[in-house]
Simulated assay, not measured.
Amino acid sequence: MDGSERFDRDQLRRDGYVVLRGAIPAEWLVPLRDAFDAGVKANDQWAVPRGPGWRHASLDLDPYVQAVCRLPVLLAAAGALIGERFFVAQVEGREPLCGGGHQGLHRDLSDQRPGDTVNALAFFDDFGPDNGATRLIPGSHRPVQRESAIHPAAESQAVQLVGSAGDILVFDADLVHAGTLNPSDARRRSILIGYFAEPCHASHLATAHLRSVRMDTSERFDP
């Protein structure tokens, strides 16, 4: 089954996200978890210090991580949203700690035009309300005023995701979303992958060092 048969493209564009169930081969999960744990760095050891409540891992050179970034179904979903040639811009491990992980609803924002930036969260552990799974508002990626503040009442529209290790959430960067408080000791390791449209490459290179990007970003993919 190829990537185009694993999700509904029209629904993806309408909702602004899709969860690709079981996209990561099961036999990759152990080496991916090992890569995450080996790559953990203290929050003050990053080019731009990370905030409290999260564990962050530098693992963008790991071959299994790079293979996940290039899974055909994941590239197909990212390409369906971006709609033009694109590249893998960055990937970082992140995990909410017990009592941490809460974020206010927000948009990561596209770079130069709506839809030119897509994020993916690839989960190495099961996720849900017990360990701070992502919440989001379907269809919220094309607001009239994309920079406007998100009203607190929007929380009533948010859906919290539930899934299994090996699932991947793909979403438009303008989709309203947030991490949720992890109330337990249950682990929720994931990698956050960024896909950018080709015209964004120059601006990406200008800030790559601030985002601790080490990997080569010269490869291009067609939607």
Score class of each variant (00 low, 15 high):
207 T>P: 01
128 G>V: 10
83 G>C: 10
15 D>K: 10
29 L>R: 01
119 N>M: 07
160 Q>F: 09
128 G>N: 08
73 V>L: 01
61 L>M: 14
5 E>V: 07
98 C>S: 15
212 S>Y: 01
201 H>V: 06
200 C>K: 03
139 G>C: 07
115 G>I: 15
143 P>F: 13
162 V>K: 09
58 S>K: 14
175 L>C: 13
126 D>P: 07
104 G>V: 10
189 R>T: 12
187 R>H: 13
83 G>H: 07
36 F>Q: 03
184 S>R: 07
89 A>C: 08
218 S>D: 15
144 V>L: 15
89 A>F: 06
67 A>P: 00
109 L>H: 14
196 F>A: 02
131 N>V: 09
56 H>M: 13
121 L>Q: 05
78 A>D: 04
200 C>L: 01
57 A>L: 04
164 S>N: 14
69 C>H: 05
90 Q>T: 03
185 D>Y: 10
113 R>I: 13
136 L>C: 14
64 Y>H: 11
163 G>F: 04
71 L>E: 01
168 I>A: 10
114 P>H: 11
117 T>N: 13
80 A>S: 06
220 R>V: 11
160 Q>N: 08
53 G>W: 00
24 I>A: 03
162 V>W: 05
190 S>K: 07
154 A>S: 13
203 S>P: 03
19 V>D: 04
97 L>H: 11
82 I>E: 01
102 H>Q: 11
113 R>Q: 13
198 E>I: 05
223 P>C: 00
42 A>Q: 08
87 F>P: 01
212 S>G: 07
91 V>T: 13
60 D>P: 07
65 V>I: 11
169 L>E: 10
96 P>L: 05
148 S>Y: 15
207 T>M: 07
223 P>E: 05
22 G>Y: 00
114 P>M: 12
204 H>K: 09
64 Y>G: 06
93 G>L: 08
145 Q>P: 04
14 R>S: 09
175 L>T: 08
22 G>Q: 03
85 R>N: 02
40 V>M: 11
142 R>D: 08
77 A>K: 04
218 S>E: 11
180 T>A: 14
192 L>V: 05
203 S>D: 12
179 G>Q: 12
194 G>W: 05
198 E>D: 14
13 R>K: 15
29 L>D: 00
219 E>Y: 02
45 Q>C: 06
116 D>S: 09
175 L>Y: 09
166 G>W: 02
30 V>S: 02
222 D>Y: 10
41 K>S: 06
138 P>R: 15
110 S>E: 12
87 F>K: 04
212 S>T: 08
179 G>M: 01
